[in-house]
Design a protein around this nucleic acid. Structure first.
Lengths: 336, 336
DNA sequence: TCAAAAGTGTTATCCTTACACCCATGT
DNA sequence: ACATGGGTGTAAGGATAACACTTTTGA
């Protein structure tokens, strides 16, 4: 999945191609995972499952996406949601080399842990990767990531104060403080894209260095692993959207096995949210909101006292206007 | 602005064109307005400002949109947000006639009331229209619209119960009840798109009849005024997004003059939300959230006791994680 | 004088958050 | 015994929604 594949196709003539890309998310062993494909080309980086939209063959954009994913990963998608359409010039180096102008429509899809096993032996080279590998600064489950104060804060400060008119400096500083909660502000776990875009603009992610054809040695300043094209941007959008959405739609259950303990559910929410939740209140909350119902069965695989297994109560969508795990991630105010 | 314009352009060869469309919203005299252009073609319907994305000339999608809007309406856009990308086959009748496959990227833009006057005499044929003209069932400010019980409910029920396997019927009935709050459910003012899509699928909006090349006499069942192509769908998306967004982002102030009374602000929120708010609580809320600050000036144009003029407190975005007019539209439980 | 809108005060209720504490299992 | 996770009770504080009521203007 690479713009090279398109040379010679009719899209060439127009200089315009729509690429459909999917961030496919699962939660396994309490860790958030993302499905990746490794292009056969000698590319050093992997990417999301993706493929060009076929105006003649695809009835809708989403259908086109589903067929590409099925072809590349032998995975059948359930929940799929469109995220955003990116069309910035030169996010794909192929474009400078005379390739077509890529416009990419990003999607997020959720699959169950059980589906994961089935596709371990999938065709092609698709693999599951830890999504925090690409955004280490987004994982606050063990407290504020050291990376933030050690590397990101000073680098972004330097970028914000760089040469230029004063209003520009102020605006940059403002954006940094807002997105990262640096100057007394608080960390908003939904602003994943804002943060990634700032790091990109400041040249602190590999993609930025690469896209600008600057010295790859600068990649030493690299924060997180890179993906091809603007796939990491799509992944950031997916993360932000999911973190927002679990609060008012029961999407988390798309990631769970048919039955689960409340603790497993909590871990899954924490995995996406990137923070810890208050156990007792979490349990009361999901019960109170009518999101789950007991199955009567017991799991003894807990490592402690056996736990009751629950299932998702589908009826909840009729009872409440916005059913979701409306949990406040435990406040850990950053120092300074 | 019409796919005809594209014939002969390079896009022709590919059968693919990206159309950029904007729902430009303002609030004047307490009424929500939408900017429309009337194509010079002998089309019976008007549409949103729109134009094709130019891969060679436009640096980003949003920049392309802005340049088309400025060209067509002489209006400079401030706040702009991308909504969704639609690519369903045959939403544009031109496509059946051998035209290129249109993929449209929809945007919503907000402009101030003051900007409105400046463009009354704009070039081209752009005019402001009442947005509830296109969605009469969305305006609950004077109570539940009669249209709902009189026309929409029975027609949708008939559609849901139409021939087909039982699971399909159930699913259709479910969707209708959820979207319109018919069966004891409540009206969620954000589900604008869900409702429009159902009406479209059920053949109850003009566009559906027209697109399917069915007897235009059926347009008698028309609910709301029609727009060209899928522009009404984009407008529905814009409405839903705005109604959601005013609750957690201070976007409403993009529509207000620099200073305003609290009642004007309330009316603007009501105009978008389509419902009434509790006056006393609204005032306390915006004050309490720190969204506004008094200017010290007084307006006597109120029709009653003179009111203090307020302005938006920009600093609020630093103080709260999600500043917005988090108001509950006054509950008017539907009968039945 | 009356209608219309600006404002203030008060209360009951619900939700959130935090803390304390006991229960059952495996090692 | 103790670590780990399951599970219950309760109380303080804040936000919300619904009232009632007074004030100030223009027609």
């Amino acid at each position: 999945m690479n713009t090279h594949d398109l040379d010679g196709l009719s899209q060439r003539a127009t200089g315009l191609v729509i690429e459909l890309s999917a961030a496919i998310v699962a939660v396994t062993d309490e860790e958030p995972k993302i499905l990746l494909v490794s292009p056969s080309e000698p590319a050093p980086r992997s990417g999301l499952p993706a493929g060009p939209f076929d105006p003649a063959g695809h009835r809708t954009l989403e259908e086109g996406l589903r067929s590409w994913v099925e072809e590349q990963t032998a995975l059948h998608l359930g929940y799929v949601e469109q995220l955003y359409t990116f069309g910035d010039r030169f996010r794909d180096p192929q474009e400078r080399a005379g390739g077509p102008r890529p416009v990419s429509v990003g999607y997020v899809a959720l699959v169950r842990q059980t589906a994961l096993k089935n596709t371990d032996k999938s065709p092609g080279e698709s693999t599951w990767g830890d999504w925090y590998r690409y955004f280490p600064w987004e994982d606050w489950r063990d407290g504020p990531p050291a990376l933030l104060d050690a590397l990101i804060a000073p680098r972004l400060a330097a970028w914000a104060e760089a040469a230029g008119p004063k209003p520009d400096k102020n605006r940059r500083r403002e954006r940094v403080n807002l997105a990262f909660g640096f100057d007394g502000g608080s960390w908003d776990n939904e602003r994943v894209l804002d943060r990634y875009e700032l790091l990109y603009e400041a040249g602190l992610v590999f993609e930025a260095v690469f896209d600008a054809h600057r010295d790859p040695a600068e990649a030493a300043a690299q924060t997180g692993a890179a993906l091809i094209k603007d796939h990491r941007r799509i992944l950031a959008t997916a993360m932000g959207r999911l973190r927002a959405k679990i609060k008012y739609r029961p999407v988390i259950f798309e990631l769970m096995a048919p039955t689960f303990t409340l603790f497993q559910l909590q871990r899954a929410v924490e995995a996406l949210s990137g923070g810890r939740l208050h156990k007792q209140n979490f349990r009361r909350l999901v019960a109170h909101e009518g999101l789950v119902e007991p199955t009567g069965h017991i799991s003894s695989q807990t490592g402690g006292r056996p736990a009751e297994l629950f299932r998702f109560r589908r009826e909840v969508v009729h009872e409440r206007p916005a059913p979701g795990v409306r949990v406040a991630v435990q406040a850990r105010k950053r120092a300074g």
